[in-house]
Write a protein that binds this DNA or RNA. Structure first.
Length: 319
DNA sequence: AAACGGTTCAACCGCAGCCCG
DNA sequence: ACGGGCTGCGGTTGAACCGTT
């Protein structure tokens, strides 16, 4: 990756005192890593001067946090992580660093790139504004079920339960202690179209009581309340079987006692299948021949644009 | 094989907020 | 209260990569 951009990399022969810009070399990486392991991170401008790097403190900080830091996770985002990003973005908008705090090992830069290159791109293709309710509906009713399906597939293929994949559900803004770790943030396929958008709702959402919803239809703003995600999940299940109890730390489903902190794979599978059924209903005959979204690698690569397009058309009829 | 166009992601920039003298 | 330095955030850029023709 050692190349020089006309704009960004200064020639060292021109002026040894000039700051370097552009891609980092292996030597620079080693120098920075070594300095930080010796002296710790922080005081970036000081570090930049003392380490011998011809970089700004800012550049050093960025390189460390986004690339060199040992706990930075490499590779594609998992479906679970993608789900979490969708959910958290619906709540917080472009608060990348805040979102990143809830995805261990992922950087704000990475999440921002994911959003812009994957999510926003799809919205652009569909001529949908990502701030619109239409888009939020699309996310909730189309993408999330698919990610959920994908998560299920990846979980079952690796013979791991969801709990073992360590999908952290954030405890945020004084969120209820009932919030859990390891719960997929799915709230069900139907939402009220009369609700306000996802922004500026922090105070309101703390007071919103999802128990007042009818169970099958929830508002987007409420569903975006991460603190209640697991609760809503229980209600979604309740929609099918009316077997949940009021304690959303645990609930029963199909006669099984399910702990929200680590709900069982069987439950997850069954629920996913039902969500998929629901989405099949929503999409109906509009599924394109040969576009098997279950087998498509939609979560890791492109979404199926045919389906998205048809789905967005369906939605537009609703508006 | 080469050219081309689209996509990805590391890195940069400007700005805002915080802290401290 | 003010100004300067530092840090962190979000938006943008562009080279490298990848798939298609």
């Amino acid at each position: 990756m050692a190349m020089s951009t006309s704009k960004s990399v200064s020639s060292s022969s021109e002026d040894d005192n000039e700051l370097r810009r552009g891609p980092w070399t292996l030597e620079e990486d080693n120098l920075l890593s070594q300095y930080i392991s010796d002296h710790g991170e922080g005081r970036w401008n000081f570090l930049a001067k003392r380490s011998g790097l011809k970089r700004t403190g800012k550049s050093c900080r960025l390189r460390w946090l986004n690339y060199l830091k040992p706990d930075v996770k490499r590779g594609n985002l998992t479906p679970q992580e993608q789900l979490l990003i969708l959910e958290l973005h619906s709540k917080w908008g472009n608060r990348w660093s805040k979102i990143a705090q809830h995805l261990p090992g992922r950087t704000d830069n990475e999440i921002k790139n994911y959003w812009r290159t994957r999510i926003q791109k799809q919205a652009r293709h569909l001529k949908i504004d990502t701030d619109s309710r239409e888009f939020q509906e699309l996310v909730r009713r189309f993408w999330m079920p698919r990610l959920l399906q994908k998560a299920k597939e990846s979980s079952s293929s690796s013979a791991m339960s969801i709990e073992n994949q360590e999908i952290p559900l954030p405890l945020v803004d004084g969120a209820s202690q009932h919030s859990t770790v390891g719960t997929i943030p799915w709230q069900g396929p139907c939402m009220s179209m009369n609700e306000a958008g996802p922004t500026h709702m922090d105070q309101h959402e703390q007071n919103s009581d999802s128990e007042h919803n009818n169970g099958s239809c929830i508002s987007f703003s409420e569903s975006a309340n991460i603190a209640k995600v697991s609760q809503q999940f229980g209600h979604t299940i309740n929609q099918f079987h009316s077997s949940s109890n009021d304690d959303f730390g645990t609930f029963t489903y199909d006669g099984h006692h399910v702990n929200n902190n680590a709900f069982e794979m069987n439950t997850f599978k069954t629920t996913t299948a039902r969500v998929a059924e629901d989405v099949q209903y929503l999409i109906g005959d509009c599924q394109m021949e040969g576009s098997n979204w279950v087998s498509n690698d939609f979560a890791c690569n492109m979404w199926n644009m045919d389906e998205l397009w048809h789905f967005s058309k369906l939605q537009k009829k609703d508006f």
